[in-house]
Each structure stands twice: as C-alpha cells, then as structure tokens.
C-alpha cells in the first residue's frame, strides 16, 4: 500500500489495483468546515486530471481532480450526511471515492509524502 500526492492537494492510497482518493489535511484546513461534497458516479471513467468531485465549505469551493486514470468503483456515501468527516479524518473516514488503477506508471508522476510536505509548506 502506498500513498501519493498531487500538487492540487489530493492524495491517492493504492492497494493492489484499488486507489482511494481524498484531500489532504492541509487542503481541508485551507477550505475550512466542509459543508457539501459532490461525488462522481460509480462506473465513471476518469482520466488523470479530470474534474472528479467538488468539495465545498461555506466560503470556498474546490474541484477535486483525479490523481490517476481509472474507473470509479465506490464513493463514500457517509459524506452526504456528514461532510465534516473530511475535516475530522481526511485520510481515513473522510475519503471521497475509490477507483481501479488503469496505469500504475502514472503513480511515478505524483509526489511522495516528503515531497508533498515540502510542497504544502
């Protein structure tokens, strides 16, 4: 299992062929209290960089881009009733959606934790 990061503050944790996508602690802090999440439809084909979801706080809204190409297999249904999970536990219970990774080579273009920590400074 590895976790990689994008410049736009998404993370993807890859376990076998399944990637779990969410936003970073830094990103949720910048947005403030999340009040609404728009998630992709299960089955949607995403290319790396596609607009996949929207996360909204009271005064800000942010598009979430697909960190990797793949097919959406599951979305975090708990978020519709409790969007605050993204603030409380962005890397855990506050994940956004899962996808099947189409091309593992794309992972190489993303940052590892140390590089991201530097980026988010």
């Amino acid at each position: 299992m590895t976790t990689k990061f994008t410049e736009d503050h998404e993370y993807v944790t890859v376990d076998g062929d399944t990637g779990t996508v969410g936003i970073t602690v830094f990103a949720q802090d910048q947005l403030g209290d999340v009040v609404f999440v728009e998630l992709p439809e299960v089955g949607r084909e995403l290319s790396k960089g596609d607009e996949a979801a929207v996360v909204e706080s009271v005064k800000a809204a942010s598009e979430i881009y697909a960190p990797l190409s793949g097919t959406v297999t599951e979305v975090n249904a708990a978020l519709s009733g409790e969007p605050g999970l993204i603030n409380q536990d962005p890397a855990g219970a506050g994940w956004l959606f899962k996808l099947t990774v189409r091309d593992h080579a794309e992972l190489e273009t993303l940052m590892d934790e140390a590089a991201y920590a530097e980026h988010a400074k």
Binding site: S57, V58, K59, A60
Partner: peptide, 10 residues
C-alpha cells in the same frame, strides 16, 4: 447560505 453556488465564490 449555500453561497458557493454564487458568482462571488465560484
């Protein structure tokens, strides 16, 4: 409320 729909944010 729901002002993220509106022009001053989006």
């Amino acid at each position: 409320t729901l002002s993220t729909r509106e022009q001053h944010i989006r």
